[in-house]
Design a protein around this nucleic acid. Structure first.
Length: 108
DNA sequence: GGATTGACGTGTC
DNA sequence: AGACACGCCAATC
């Protein structure tokens, strides 16, 4: 089975350190997909189906906005998990986003 | 195999 | 600052 783009996304998302967040675009870029940030988000739709749990709550859009929170079991789950890891979230938006930002290209 | 679809990104108005 | 428009690109129908 070839590892589709989705699988690559899943693996990379699992590498996100606790208390850190990254953006879809950054993930796509690190995978060499360039501007296929949408694919990353689309892949996350299947994240719930993935066998090993995926910390999808650590993935937000470039604005640090919790765009995909509605895809969780509950819309509040995402924010709770983030705050639990030390990330402040207000108005569905991550505070100090740059501070918590984790760039795969830079860290790997 | 063309059309549709997106948990996006950046730029304009 | 908020709303709208267009581009990108792989998976799915």
């Amino acid at each position: 089975m070839e590892q589709s783009f989705y699988d690559q996304v899943f693996e990379l998302v699992r590498l996100i350190p606790k208390g850190r967040v990254t953006s879809y675009g950054a993930i796509a870029k690190s995978l060499g997909a360039g501007g296929s940030a949408r694919m990353v988000g689309y892949a996350m739709s299947n994240a719930s189906l993935a066998h090993p749990p995926i910390p999808a709550h650590r993935v937000v859009n470039s604005s640090g906005l919790l765009t995909g929170k509605f895809h969780f079991e509950t819309p509040d789950l995402m924010q709770e998990l983030l705050e639990k890891e030390g990330v402040m979230v207000k108005g569905d938006k991550i505070q100090n986003f740059k501070k918590h930002f984790w760039d795969p290209l830079q860290e790997l």
